[in-house]
């Protein structure tokens, strides 16, 4: 099998970890490189900024507060990457990347294109609570991506049984 590069978008949610364990089970033969990518928003203390896709919170009243929020987001993204990598036990080539961008889907699609990826893999939904609907980020990725996108949904029967166990 020729080199096969996939971009796995993760936010550390159960859906993303399921996507990772699917890769671990099914895409291990051959020269698979997995780019584990997490996206964080761009915090700002400009109220108008939310129109431009930046994250605004009225409680952030100083540059320091914004910086702290940003640091926390970086830590969370880093944890998400670690948890996801932990599931990928059979993959030998893993690249990790935290992207900072106002639009996660756009950032992931650009990243995939820049790294000549063959496929983007995402869990169907992240931390949102909109029931079983396709998550907005995965939908936006499918909509924008010029390369194939695999969305890993999950089965009602797996709900409790096969949630990937994560120990740190």
């Amino acid at each position: 099998m020729a080199d096969f590069t996939v971009v796995l978008a993760t936010d550390g949610s159960v859906g993303a970890l399921k996507a990772a364990s699917w890769i671990d089970e099914n895409l291990v033969d051959g020269n698979v490189t997995v780019h584990v990518v997490s996206v964080i928003g761009v915090p700002s203390f400009d109220e108008e900024a939310s129109n431009r896709g930046l994250v605004y919170n009225p409680q952030w009243d100083s540059a320091e507060a914004v910086h702290n929020a940003w640091s926390r987001a970086m830590v969370r993204a880093d944890e998400a990457l670690h948890q996801t990598e932990h599931v990928l036990t059979h993959v030998h080539r893993i690249e990790r990347q935290i992207l900072q961008a106002p639009h996660p889907a756009e950032a992931i699609v650009h990243y995939a294109r820049d790294h000549h990826a063959d496929m983007i893999i995402v869990g169907r939904r992240g931390h949102s609570r909109l029931g079983s609907l396709l998550g907005s980020v995965s939908f936006a990725i499918v909509h924008q991506s010029p390369i194939p996108v695999t969305v890993i949904g999950h089965h009602p029967l797996w709900e409790n049984a096969a949630a990937p166990s994560v120990s740190s």
Binding site: W22, M119, S132, L133, L134, V142, H143, S145, P146, I147, P148, V149, T150, V151, I152, G153, H154, H155, P156, W158
Partner: peptide, 26 residues
């Protein structure tokens, strides 16, 4: 145009099995 097809979208939304959507050449 560019929008995802209704069948692909419906499969996408409810499939418990991984789905790969392949984008046609531009």
């Amino acid at each position: 145009g560019h929008w995802i097809g209704s069948v692909s979208f419906a499969v996408f939304q409810r499939s418990p099995i991984p789905v790969t959507i392949v984008e046609p050449d531009q």
